[in-house]
Nucleic acid binder design. Structure first.
Lengths: 347, 347
DNA sequence: TTTTCAATTGAAAACGTTTTCAAATTCATT
DNA sequence: AATGAATTTGAAAACGTTTTCAATTGAAAA
């Protein structure tokens, strides 16, 4: 397996120069003569020599590696952030390592210790996770990490932690969704997947409430701890079975498209026709959202862009100190067929 | 940012011992006295000292890092393999780095050089990518990589490369799908997404042909270079518009569930009712496949299991040489509602 | 008290690079 | 041919650990 690892000294010996010279050739340093350069290059190529990046990193104090902390890899929302960040890092000679912090697991010192030990050059953090027991825990742990490497969050800023943050204002997004439904005549609108335990979801919930209040509509909510298709099915069942038919909402806003998948399915199982019997709006505009039945009206979050820009900033931050800032992006409402004009205007 | 990096020597000095002793405390070596152990531990904790993993790795010749080569991160098939592999690696103190080799991009020496430079401890390879110009290219490049680290493929074995391979026999899967449809009375069955350019897809195609032949049915195929929802829509359009209604297939087998998403949508746009007017079978059993309209009959591939087992083997291989072997898994046909008995038996 | 042996400790070498600094070489100028 | 400057080169130190081996300590046995 491990071939006789060949080092810079072996190359130097064979080329009849010193290790320093080989190092200079490797780094394309200007002051090495044409003749030596070519001779050394030849030997390097002959043995297919690749310098050990750990030895390099030890000296340069840089691993050329970025970390990314995410609750999930398979969730298309995070997969997309990750993918874009990885691509941006890759084209700058960096590699990215994923550190998974599942939902409902509190961040611990031991968790960030891993990143510190590996001497990462920076870290991208994207939340959506459940708030730790005390509100100071998250900023405290990340604050410690920040003493070692720059941090960029791809989620709303964390109170008590000052760093670059890039996110989409989903409170605004939800207000847009409510307004859109109201324009279509809906009065009884429910929010599925509410929970104040998750930070970014809290935003969406707040936006929903705000706009409902602004329109003098009374908000209906169905809280759920998780936001999977399965949860979506359950949520619909719980919400509707708890209400006399007369009081059913005519429109549902679902906390994300993944959960909306289950919502659509359950409504269809109950024999409701969409959008006539019920309008549905999701959030995130996933790859599958244009292919649901009916195609889902949703909020575009542009996770690719988030991941890319966040990584750019992180790379920048490793080169020079940049002062913290917050970049808020505005979501667009993608209107498809799942929210057609309500046939039964409320009240 | 980069705090005054504190080293093992600083700890040693403050604790009044040698660096060797601190190292022993760090590694929980047996022969260090209770008294010294505790004194050193105290200083370590006081400064929150974390040993530099690059220095460690330099000496131990191990980065405690695995690589994974995949065509895509966002594709749920690969995301799932990656996620499981990452989890397994993580619980063994390893971290995994992703190296993306997009579809249609040929693997190059420069590509694997990255992994060699970083002195990864092993690499998981999952293909599905387009075959390189010459069939020797892929085994040649990977063969070189294999001189540096063990490789496990999470795809059918690559001719000319001997290593551990774990995969699901999708040729068999497709035969099951064909047989199932035939049992339901279908005679005209089409395969959507055929192309002999992609290795694993080639398998599926071959299985389809084999079983059709065995049943004396004449195979219909619609080749496509990519397998996205968009392709699915196009494929249906192209296939059906090229055929008089009388000769339309009554069942479609789609190369994967992602593409099936588009197939279902297009059929629905054309006003066909599923499964009465057309049966559809997919492949992969993605998280969304139970939530399509109608829920999709598909082949279970169990990517999680693949990723987990492959990583276990890879970890094993870093500890001791294990002889190459091939683990073939049998896919299960998950029967849902998209393939109900055909109402219009063929011919 | 001396001897013997095991347990504990530290000095130094090693891992494979890059960088600094001084020495050696080349080259142009007088 | 001698001088000086500019270019090219190598020796050695540094990066932060772990491990080996010999030295020291302490305790038990004589």
């Amino acid at each position: 397996m491990a071939g006789d690892t060949i080092t810079i000294l072996d190359i130097a010996r064979e080329a009849g120069v010193s290790a320093a010279t080989v190092s200079r050739v490797l780094g394309d340093h200007p002051n090495v003569s044409q003749k030596t350069y070519q001779a050394v290059r030849r030997v390097i190529d002959k043995y297919n020599f690749k310098p050990n990046s750990m030895a390099r990193g030890l000296l340069s104090r840089s691993s050329r590696t970025m970390g990314i902390i995410l609750p999930s890899i398979t969730h298309p929302y995070y997969a997309s952030i990750f993918s874009a960040a990885q691509e941006e890092a890759g084209s700058n000679g960096f590699v990215v390592q994923i550190y998974r912090l599942p939902y409902n697991i509190r961040i611990s010192d031991a968790f960030v210790d891993q990143l510190i030990e590996r001497r990462l050059d920076g870290v991208l953090f994207s939340g959506g996770f459940v708030e730790p027991k005390s509100p100071e825990e998250l900023p405290a742990v990340l604050g410690r990490l920040k003493q070692y490497m720059p941090i960029v969050t791809v989620c709303p800023p964390i109170p008590g932690l000052s760093c670059i943050s890039i996110y989409t204002d989903l409170a605004l997004g939800m207000r847009k969704a409510v307004r859109h439904l109201a324009t279509l005549g809906h009065r009884r609108i429910a929010f599925l997947g509410a929970t104040d335990e998750t930070r970014s979801v809290g935003d969406r919930e707040a936006g929903f409430f705000d706009e409902m209040r602004a329109l003098s509509l009374s908000p209906l909510i169905q809280p759920e701890k998780t936001h999977t298709p399965q949860t979506g099915e359950m949520a619909v069942l719980k919400l509707l079975s708890g209400l006399p038919r007369m009081e059913w909402p005519t429109a549902l806003i679902v906390v994300n498209d993944l959960m909306a998948l289950g919502v659509l399915r359950q409504l269809s199982k109950m024999g409701l026709t969409l959008p006539d019997d019920m309008a549905v709006v999701g959030c995130d505009n996933q790859f599958f959202s244009a292919y649901t039945h009916p195609p889902l009206t949703t909020l575009e979050v542009n996770t690719d862009e988030h991941g890319r820009v966040a990584m750019q900033q992180l790379l920048q931050a490793t080169r020079q100190d940049i002062p913290p800032f917050i970049q808020v992006r505005e979501p667009t409402l993608i209107v498809r067929e799942s929210c057609g004009a309500g046939k039964r205007p409320g009240i």
